[in-house]
């Protein structure tokens, strides 16, 4: 009786809709794959994809590729976001330099970064360095824009308090600026993480012999459709997991953060977010 009521409590109408939607999509996929409407092998049955997914997960080479992709994304993210926070603080704190350079940052942020891959490959070569550079580049723009936006929403009183204590620049950054702009900065970093992974994957797809992107394109070129689907599912799952973990990691830092104004400012960033 108790378990029945717990089950009813868990199975809310919203969850019921979600489950029904997944079932409908799976049935539609199954029917389409056996309908003969598409060429044979183009759309494998869900069960075949599940089998390919399991066999992929049992391959040690998958974890090597996964490790390489995550390493490239992590290094690119650290380099890109460190540069971005420095540039964002510099431009945020100086009206003159902000007016001089912010338009260029916004212009570059709205562009498809993938077209810079030839330059990145020419400068950094075809190895791991070019993937790190692409990841850093993809991270740089959303984090810079969020840092500038976060700086501009800092309460002037806080800055005045810091100045009245004659804090030097390093202390102003550590004690006033960064704590006051934590939320918009965290939104920017969150976006930066997603961009770093997408940046690495796009560079790996364009040219690489290792990494998840290279694995995906290798299967696709060999017309191994079930494994292509499987790798894609793994990539989506990894991206979602990294995003979720990063959000969890940020929570303790945001617990004591009081200002909510930055959230709205940082949301304007979505315009600058570029998928590739």
């Amino acid at each position: 009786m108790n378990s029945t009521s717990a089950y009813t409590h868990w199975l809310t109408p919203v969850r019921r809709i979600k489950i029904c939607t997944i079932l409908v999509l799976l049935i539609a996929w199954q029917l389409l794959s056996i309908s003969g409407l598409l060429f044979e092998g183009v759309l494998p049955q869900p069960l075949a994809v599940l089998k390919a997914l399991v066999s992929e997960l049992l391959l040690p080479s998958l974890y090597i590729d996964l490790g390489i992709t995550l390493f490239e994304a992590a290094v690119g993210f650290v380099v890109g976001s460190a540069l971005a926070v420095a540039v964002g603080l510099w431009l945020g704190s100086s009206g003159f330099f902000r007016r001089a350079f912010e338009p260029y940052i916004h212009a570059l942020a709205s562009m498809p970064k993938i077209i810079f891959l030839p330059i990145i490959f020419l400068v950094f070569g075809l190895g791991i360095e070019s993937k790190i550079a692409k990841s850093a580049m993809s991270t740089f723009f959303p984090v810079t824009i969020s840092t500038i936006a976060g700086f501009l929403q800092i309460d002037q009183t806080l800055i005045n308090v810091g100045r009245s204590f004659h804090l030097d620049r390093a202390k102003m950054i550590r004690l006033i600026y960064l704590p006051a702009m934590l939320r918009p900065l965290s939104v920017g970093l969150q976006l930066g993480v997603a961009m770093a992974i997408i940046g690495v994957l796009s560079a790996e797809i364009a040219y690489a012999s290792v990494g998840l992107g290279a694995r995906l394109i290798r299967y696709s070129d060999n017309f191994n459709v079930s494994s292509t689907y499987a790798v894609m599912i793994i990539i989506f799952a990894v991206t979602a997991t990294v995003n979720h973990l990063f959000m969890r990691l940020q929570k303790p830092f945001l617990r004591h953060e009081r200002s909510r104004q930055g959230e709205a400012a940082a949301l304007t960033l979505t315009a600058a977010r570029t998928p590739a």
Partner: peptide
């Protein structure tokens, strides 16, 4: 937030 463009190999096949 998902890397939708990665789906292109599938749709190239389909």
């Amino acid at each position: 937030a998902a890397p939708i463009f990665l789906l292109y190999p599938l749709f190239m096949v389909i």
